[in-house]
Design a protein around this nucleic acid. Structure first.
Length: 288
DNA sequence: TTCTGCCCTTGGCA
DNA sequence: ATGCCAAGGGCAG
């Protein structure tokens, strides 16, 4: 089935920019799991009557493609007017340069629960290994789904992960992050952390309850907020972004502490700061 | 109160 | 090969 796109859209850049952790590239196809469905998707360009046309096609199981279509539109945030976003964030010339380099890189609207656990796993870690940890959690505690003879697994429920011991998670290679999983899972499972409600709360009011979980500080909270809870003003500051901000905006000075940097960035980049951050992060990371 | 330095797991990467 | 580093957070001092 086909996904109609009338927006700037670069599938590969969006899926490989380090936001989401369950996508694998198989040639021109990407495979992943969204909302409990195994999805296979590609972006191909065909030239018809001299004008190039981009086609995004996908398959899914067990959800029929027609049912998955609106979920994919939401996942890729096709409801964001990216050109309007560009008009705002390109007021900053560094961001404008990255937008010019990676047009169509989109923020993804991920599932909050999975996003929460994935970013707990991201602490002091590198992207390939985060992918590996999330995949191992799915393989170990999720349910299998088959598509075209390939098997992937759903991401486990909060109830399931709340039962898993720290030792088991350490054996999966989670390291010191293993002890943070069960408390977060328990909070979500018993309703004391209501992720769906946080999507409707203002930024600060959504951030505080996230940070009450052990293992979640300001950076990870901002990741969960921008990648799954509709807070496009959130601005996660990791080592790459900290270096970039220090070098570009505070040259010759000691880089301010993260708390100060965050306030500066939210003021400087505005309501779409999260998009600015993603472009800065992606551009900076690919420079190496 | 705020800042600094250190520790934590493990594998990717040069 | 062997050390540095990674979409950080918690803690002591």
């Amino acid at each position: 089935m086909e996904l109609a796109v009338d927006q700037p859209f670069d599938l590969a850049a969006s899926l490989e920019s380090g936001q989401a952790h369950r996508w694998r590239r198989e040639g021109e196809w990407f495979t992943g799991v969204i909302q409990g469905s195994f999805v296979k998707i590609r972006q191909a360009s065909f030239s018809a009557q001299g004008s190039a046309r981009d086609v995004v096609e996908f398959r899914s199981e067990p959800w029929p493609e027609a049912a998955l279509l609106p979920r994919l539109q939401a996942y890729f945030r096709l409801d964001d007017d990216l050109n309007a976003v560009y008009q705002e964030i390109c007021q900053d010339l560094r961001v404008a340069e990255m937008v010019g380099r990676y047009p169509g890189l989109r923020l993804l609207r991920q599932e909050p629960w999975e996003c929460l656990i994935a970013y707990i796993c991201s602490a002091n870690n590198n992207i390939p290994r985060i992918h590996q940890m999330v995949e191992k959690l799915a393989e170990s505690f999720g349910s299998p789904i088959t598509l075209d003879g390939l098997v992937r697994h759903t991401f486990p429920t909060p109830q399931r992960l709340a039962q898993v011991s720290e030792g088991e998670l350490r054996q999966l290679g989670l390291g010191f992050r293993a002890r943070y999983i069960a408390p977060a899972a328990q909070a979500v499972a018993d309703g004391s952390l209501d992720l769906a409600a946080l999507a409707h709360a203002p930024y600060e009011e959504a951030k505080a309850p996230l940070m009450e979980c052990p293992g979640i500080g300001p950076k990870i909270a901002d990741c969960v907020l921008v990648f799954s809870l509709e807070k496009l003003e959130a601005f996660p500051i990791d080592v790459w972004v900290r270096r970039a901000l220090g070098e570009w905006y505070f040259p010759g000075q000691k880089t301010p502490p993260d708390r100060v940097l965050l306030e500066w960035a939210r003021q400087h980049f505005g309501r779409y700061a999260g998009y600015s951050q993603q472009y800065l992060f992606h551009g900076r990371r690919l420079e190496r």
